[in-house]
């Protein structure tokens, strides 16, 4: 499903004396369909960078980043976007959406993107928000307006469409001790 071959990544800061920050070198990783792999390491070890390389958000300096049969390190934007829409989901602790859009619609959006009818998409979104312990009166509000909203809505959004592969980057990092359990067991 996901296969990294000799992947290297460094950042060149052109406006800061062209400093080169090496982040990872010759990383290999194979994740088969149905496998659940955990990445652990200290801050700065490159966990998030690895996830972003797989998602195509960072550009690999060398190596191959295969998601299915697509090399994300080389692919045209439209092919990466199709992969993200249909195959590869990504949940982080940050949410980037249009301001003031209702939480329910933020969660339903990935389903609409694959052609799910509006009613069905909203029903699925509602059941996910309920599972994540978000009271119904908050569903019409923007996720940024209520406590833990961004993280929980982000998780719901990540699970709305049944992606064959999902990248989870500290998705429960800023939730309290009671809420992560709801996040960890979305059914």
């Amino acid at each position: 499903m996901i296969e990294l071959e000799n992947v290297s990544k460094s950042f060149t800061l052109h406006n800061q004396g062209s400093a080169v920050i090496p982040v990872m070198e010759r990383v290999n990783l194979t994740v088969g369909a149905g496998e659940c792999v955990g990445l652990v390491g200290a801050s700065g070890a490159g966990k998030s960078t690895l996830m972003r390389l797989i998602y195509g958000n960072y550009l690999a300096a060398a190596g191959r980043v295969m998601v299915g049969d697509l090399d994300v390190a080389q692919a045209a934007p439209r092919h990466i976007i199709a992969r993200r829409r249909e195959t590869l989901g990504y949940v982080s602790q940050f949410l980037r959406v249009v301001p003031r859009v209702a939480a329910l619609d933020v969660v339903a959006e990935p389903l609409l993107a694959v052609g799910t009818p509006l009613e069905a998409a909203r029903d699925k979104a509602a059941s996910l928000l309920a599972q994540l312990n978000i009271p119904e009166r908050l569903w019409s509000l923007s996720p940024t307006t209520f406590s833990g909203g961004e993280q929980r809505v982000n998780i719901a959004r990540g699970f709305a469409y049944a992606y064959p592969a999902l990248l989870l980057d500290e998705p429960t990092a800023s939730l309290d001790a009671k809420n992560p359990r709801h996040g960890a067991d979305p059914g």
Binding site: R52, G56, N57, Y58, P77, I80
Partner: peptide
């Protein structure tokens, strides 16, 4: 390139 890639990397 891909919008978020150009902006984030």
């Amino acid at each position: 390139g891909l919008t978020d890639q150009v902006l984030d990397d």
